[in-house]
Design a protein around this nucleic acid. Sequence first.
DNA 1: ACCTGAACACCGTTCAAGT
DNA 2: ACCTGAACACCGTTCAAGT
Lengths: 193, 193
Amino acid sequence: MQLHKRDVVAAATALLDSYGLADLTMRRLARELGVSPGALYWHFANKQELLGAVADQILATVPEAAGDWRARIEGVCAGLRDALLSHTDGAELVSASFAAGQSAVMRRILDRLTDAVTEAGFAPAHAELAARTVVYYVLGFTVDEQSRLQWDAAGAELPADQSVLDDDADARFRFGVDLLIDGIRVADPSVLR
Amino acid sequence: MQLHKRDVVAAATALLDSYGLADLTMRRLARELGVSPGALYWHFANKQELLGAVADQILATVPEAAGDWRARIEGVCAGLRDALLSHTDGAELVSASFAAGQSAVMRRILDRLTDAVTEAGFAPAHAELAARTVVYYVLGFTVDEQSRLQWDAAGAELPADQSVLDDDADARFRFGVDLLIDGIRVADPSVLR
DNA sequence: ACCTGAACACCGTTCAAGT
DNA sequence: ACCTGAACACCGTTCAAGT
């Protein structure tokens, strides 16, 4: 039967979770779907575009955050990190797709953060910059965290107090988010609208 | 005559500047040096390690910053961004090498930032986190800036008021750095030592 | 409209064998 | 110690031709 975009994205996500980003190749994906490599290029212009669709699939679980601007920033950051950690190499994939401008959902998340910073009193242009700073932090932190997690998982047996390490990572993550929120809170009045 | 590590890194940097990261391949580099591809693996364990050496070469120009902790953070950030923008795809290459833990100089830069944040009053563990946040920002911002710059350069003719755009990018960059410095300045006393 | 088959132009890495 | 030659096991992308 016919190949649909969503089947391709689903198969790609499964491949990612099982074997990681390095093994998510167009040829291997085609093999998994039982089609020739060229078939994928009817549905996607190139690999970058396909990876962008996978990134958006991963980000689909990031919930809308409610509350005041601080709560919304914290909520979006936590939801974003959770989504990235839910898939093998998720942070690296989304980070690359965002940099390549291939993730529509990532742009929406940026917009939501920009709204929150605007509510904190920033003029629109500065609000987007502050929102970008938040996104760079979440992506940078989580790429780092995930590479260590996956390295540890591949290596020695996990220590029994795994949860302590998890809690620590959570706390470390929130520390950086709070640092950015503090910066936004006390920003020089000249940037406010 | 004999192939030395520094010749390989110099040729790799030249290839990067002329053709970009995508065309910096082990085979092409070997061809440029007049050796067989396998020869490179006598001097470097793998491509990642070689790219790390190129990253460190790029970062060699980042100057030591002096002054109080704020001036040092601003100086390191500005010097880092300048170094990255001086080579085609420099930001992307250094970002990837840093994430892969292959850049010794990047670790030293992180240490210098950690020292500065410690002087601002943070306990060591929190100081490193804040320093990482700064690094994530500089890398994220500059990867983004450079991809736009290179996209524009490849496309339409540059407008006459190019310098205005440059100044704008400088100001935008400093805005984010100041946001982080503000966050560090007013951080919750519980994280201070 | 959607896909196949086959080709094009490459990759990173390894390793016996040479000097 | 340092490098070659050749192989291994792949890549992303294109495109005439088929249905």
